[in-house]
């Protein structure tokens, strides 16, 4: 008892300090570093420019519009074939937010936005930029939010080729490239085709522009692959648009009768679009 007491007297200070620091670290970890991010947002506020359209982003904007046009035309043709199609698209609320930080670690492709739950952003919201989809929200604090970019390898999205409706899923690679794996053995795809999110995606609404096909490898096993160049300028984003609100009501996936749909739009097997959440 006495030795224990003496040991406690000698080490009391260190033990309390160590448990305090460990406690703080655990707290920061459980709260997703909210405190640090809030301080970061406060400190960088003077440096955050107002979201202004810049000339180098305009090219990307034009590309996005072109892709949307291809997507719309193709979708329109399909809709004409389907009788009794009614759409009840909700218009999502759009929050423009500055990009205040990149990822805090090299293995994750993340960005930090300077708007948070106070401005109406919630988990799972879709983040857009001039050029198309950028990613989705995986963490929110009062005035910041963290975006998992499409270029992160753990971010898997169901996508389709806008021209031919060939389906597959896409997995990020670092930089602004991603790899798309097709469900079909012989997909109808060629270089330069626009790629958009598909109706099979559970996390993203259908028909949002993503990028264009850069190269194709049809002999790849187990499934043909294509390298996709993301059209949003992910490496020099200065601001992004968060589409808030539940946009999950996807008219195409619910009201599309499977028997009258074109045969190439339905994946042959029961492969779902795999979408991993990290």
């Amino acid at each position: 008892m006495y030795t224990l007491r003496r040991w406690w007297d000698r080490h009391r200070f260190q033990i309390i300090l160590v448990s305090l620091t460990l406690g703080t670290a655990l707290f920061l970890r459980q709260t997703q570093g909210a405190l640090v991010l809030e301080i970061y947002q406060l400190l960088t506020r003077p440096f955050q420019g107002n979201p202004t359209q810049q000339s180098r982003l305009e090219d990307a904007r034009i590309l996005e519009l072109q892709q949307r046009l291809v997507e719309m035309e193709s979708q329109n043709d399909e809709l004409k074939k389907v009788l009794g199609y009614t759409t009840e698209n909700k218009v999502p609320q759009e929050i423009i937010s500055p990009v205040i930080g990149r990822s805090s670690d090299h293995w994750w492709q993340q960005i930090t936005l300077g708007r948070g739950s106070r401005d109406g952003i919630s988990m799972g919201d879709i983040v857009m930029a001039p050029g198309g989809v950028v990613g989705r929200i995986v963490g929110v604090t009062a005035s910041t939010s963290r975006v998992l970019l499409l270029s992160d390898p753990s971010n898997q999205v169901g996508v389709s080729i806008s021209r031919s409706r060939s389906m597959g899923y896409m997995r990020g690679q670092s930089g602004n490239r991603a790899v798309m794996e097709f469900f079909d053995k012989v997909p109808d795809v060629k270089r330069g085709d626009a790629v958009a999110t598909s109706a099979f995606s559970q996390l993203y609404p259908a028909g949002l522009p993503i990028g264009r096909v850069e190269s194709i490898n049809l002999s790849k096993s187990p499934a043909p692959e294509a390298v996709i160049e993301l059209s949003a300028p992910i490496s020099y984003l200065e601001w992004a648009v968060v589409r808030s609100g539940k946009t999950s009501s996807q008219p195409t996936s619910d009201s599309q009768p499977s028997d009258s749909a074109p045969s190439n739009s339905v994946p042959s097997s029961s492969e779902p679009s795999q979408e991993a959440t990290p």
Partner: peptide, 13 residues
């Protein structure tokens, strides 16, 4: 350990 836990909070655990 302490700094690693904090960085986990900032990225992904």
């Amino acid at each position: 350990l302490v700094l690693g836990l904090i960085q986990d909070g900032l990225t992904s655990p």
